[in-house]
């Protein structure tokens, strides 16, 4: 679990997941943000909602307008987030899907 490259086998980003797909959060990457504070607050706010490494996550609905934002289920909480933010969340696919 120490290697968290998005390209690794069995890994994907939350933004790529389709309805009903389940996984476990491997890491939350910090891509080039428009401003550093912006990104820091994003990570903090994801954490507030329980989005952190190790949490189970399931992709749910996408907006009818361009598929952005999407809704996901993290543990027992349903959360809406935009694709740009979802693509920073690296997922380890769970078997049996």
């Amino acid at each position: 679990m120490s290697d968290t490259t998005a390209n690794r086998e069995g890994q994907t980003t939350l933004a790529e997941m389709r309805y009903g797909e389940k996984g476990r959060i491997a890491s939350i990457s910090s891509p080039a943000a428009e401003s550093p504070e912006n990104n820091e607050s994003l990570a903090a706010r994801l954490l507030e909602l329980g989005i952190m490494e190790g949490a189970e996550i399931e992709a749910l609905h996408r907006s009818p307008f361009g598929g952005d934002p999407m809704s996901v289920k993290v543990e027992r909480t349903i959360i809406a987030l935009r694709r740009a933010d979802a693509s920073t969340i690296i997922i380890e696919r769970l078997n049996g899907n």
Binding site: E34, S35, N38, L42, R45, L46, L49, P69, S71, T77, I78, I79, A80, L81, R82, A84, D85
Partner: peptide, 12 residues
């Protein structure tokens, strides 16, 4: 300026 992203809970 940069827009804040959407991040919110959808309550049951």
């Amino acid at each position: 300026g940069a827009s804040q992203s959407l991040l919110m809970e959808l309550p049951k």
